[in-house]
Design a protein around this nucleic acid. Structure first.
Ligand SMILES: [Mn+2]
Ligand SMILES: [Mn+2]
Ligand SMILES: [Zn+2]
Ligand SMILES: [Zn+2]
Lengths: 159, 159
DNA sequence: GGTAAATTGATAATGAATATCAATTAAGGT
DNA sequence: ACCTTAATTGATATTCATTATCAATTTACC
């Protein structure tokens, strides 16, 4: 992803957020700006609320974690972020990328590495599976767990 | 499932539990017997700990809910029960059936109805998907959400 | 029956997430 | 710039499911 594209992305996101705030009669605040900057400039995906809060605090120590919770939920509501719940009990968020399509994850049970994937075959198969059970599929949750390779065991991607 | 088969199943389960208790130097207790009976005679699948506790209390009001938690975990450890976590924040358990194979679920977002399914195609597809990402697949979580039909909305399967 | 170790159940503690609420701040009109 | 109003914030309390604690009880074995 080149610089131009990234810049455009940020502006687009800002526009999405601003129009959502206007539509819902919400206000633009310094705290939301700060969290916006930190969240969308963060390179690592699938950050937990606590992790993001720790980074945000460095920029502005006065921001409370309730605000971080609230703001991430706001990003989710306006379609800028996905909310994730892998098995570890802490909610994580990741930016919605350009295409905006859903995707699923492969998680290494040794080092915590997470790979995102979007496989159309899976979608088709699950759709027909639901149909054959007389269900109208509206959403699904899919997570693969395994080992990424034999050399990752000494690492630790968890916080 | 006829009566003979069900009876054999119960005896087999009892044997599995007893041999596990022996192997781990655990003890057979009245409480474990009661919870065993209630859990494996319960027809509805995917029962929550709280729900099971309420039924167990009718049989023996002195049993504490900590014991129900502990015993369901015991059933899981010895391979007699699956532990489930759908999105509602409460852990559920279901008996492992004869074949013992894993299975996944379709959940109606209107009435809470849950259908279990075991589709070999899914397994194969996910296996190859993991392989193509250089992962050794060891487990996965798959839940489909949708509507079972148009006549279920007035019902309520939640507790 | 006696002994050691496992079990139980009442209760406290945990931890992530949400609710509360007084003080602050943003936005729009004047 | 001031006023008014409603949204926002952050410290704190609360919720809720689950786990930890621990003295009293019960089981298994001799
Ligand atoms: Mn992802
Ligand atoms: Mn099932
Ligand atoms: Zn790994
Ligand atoms: Zn339904």
């Amino acid at each position: 992803m080149n610089t131009l594209k990234k810049k455009r992305s940020k502006n687009e996101r800002k526009r999405v957020l601003d129009s959502y705030l206007a539509k819902k009669q919400l206000k633009s605040t310094k705290q939301r700006d700060t969290i916006f900057d930190v969240f969308f400039n963060h390179t690592d995906d699938h950050i937990s609320v606590e992790e993001l809060y720790e980074i945000v605090k460095k920029r502005n120590p006065k921001i409370g974690f309730a605000t971080v919770y609230r703001t991430l939920k706001l990003f989710k509501e306006c379609g800028l972020a996905f909310e994730r719940n892998f098995g570890d009990g802490r909610t994580r968020y990741e930016p919605v990328t350009f295409d905006g399509e859903r995707h699923d994850h492969i998680i290494c049970i040794d080092c915590g590495k997470i790979i995102c994937f979007n496989n159309p075959e899976v979608q088709v198969l699950l759709q027909s599976l639901a149909k054959s059970n007389k269900f109208e599929l509206s959403n699904y949750k899919l997570e693969l767990y395994g080992n990424c390779d034999s050399s990752c065991e000494s690492q630790d991607h968890s916080s």
